[in-house]
């Protein structure tokens, strides 16, 4: 089994009413890999996360996780199989505290309330937020909210974690902390896919990147090689084709 990719996406199509957000996308993710998804606004990156995690129903195509087809399964079933995600717009449970946000996810893995709470406390500590555990999440800074979202996603004990734009909108002083959390995650051997517009993060963390454009894959390879491609420079990095 180890030779097989953890995630296989084949000919994935997602159609929103009049708009084809993904138009036949195929890629693999190896176990333990740190994959970056980049591309211009509206390229379909978040939609790909949605389709894999069961937040969005795929119109066509197959998604295989750990040898099992998962396309079209309900979101909570996919989560149970070991896929977690965060959302671009964070989407915490706004009436709950930071600790409750993480506990409610941990409780899907631990029957006892005490164990779930302990695990949640551990995870908040891990992302450096133990001191804010009882704060209502609405009172937290965006950076802290994103860290709660990571802790909540980890509470599901995933094999594959998908992070959607962790660094966007983050205050300068929170930057290095979040970067170190991401680095730690990579070092645990967890399989990660990140959507990120900030190329410095992509360059520093990823093993490989896939460039999305207009619902298709434009390029794929290691970060520096991909950025050197003229088509990528033109559509994403905003440079005229030489």
């Amino acid at each position: 089994m180890t030779g097989q990719p953890l995630l296989q996406v084949r000919d994935l199509v997602v159609q929103y009413d009049g708009l084809r957000a993904l138009d036949g996308v195929s890629f693999d993710v190896r176990r333990g890999e740190f994959l970056g998804l980049i591309g211009p606004n509206g390229a379909g990156k978040s939609t790909a996360f949605g389709a894999i995690a069961g937040t969005v129903r795929p119109t066509a195509g197959t998604i295989t996780f750990d040898g099992r087809p998962i396309q079209g399964l309900a979101g909570h079933r996919i989560a149970k199989l070991g896929i977690s995600r965060t959302f671009q717009h964070v989407r915490l449970f706004t009436s709950l505290t930071a600790l409750e946000n993480v506990t409610v996810a941990a409780a899907t893995r631990h029957r006892s309330r005490r164990t779930a709470r302990l695990r949640a406390q551990q995870l908040l500590e891990h992302v450096g937020l133990a001191h804010l555990a009882t704060s209502p999440v609405a009172a937290l800074s965006l950076g802290h909210q994103k860290l709660v979202a990571i802790a909540r996603a980890l509470a599901n004990e995933p094999c594959l974690l998908m992070l959607d734009e962790m660094m966007s909108g983050i205050a300068d002083h929170e930057w290095s902390h979040i970067l170190s959390v991401l680095t730690d995650l990579r070092d645990t051997g967890l399989t990660l896919i990140v959507v990120e517009h900030i190329m410095e993060i992509i360059d520093r963390l990823t093993d490989r990147v896939i460039v999305f454009s207009d619902g298709r894959i434009l390029a794929e390879g290691n970060s520096l090689d991909v950025q050197a491609q003229p088509a990528v420079r033109a559509t994403y990095l905003g440079e005229p084709i030489a």
Partner: peptide, 25 residues
């Protein structure tokens, strides 16, 4: 105050995020 109540409040606040957290909405 129970786990069930916590799940209900999570579902009320954001059903999609609740599902992504493993909760059967």
């Amino acid at each position: 105050r129970s786990n069930f109540g916590l799940r209900l409040r999570a579902v009320r606040d954001d059903p999609a995020a609740a599902a992504a957290s493993g909760i059967a909405v």
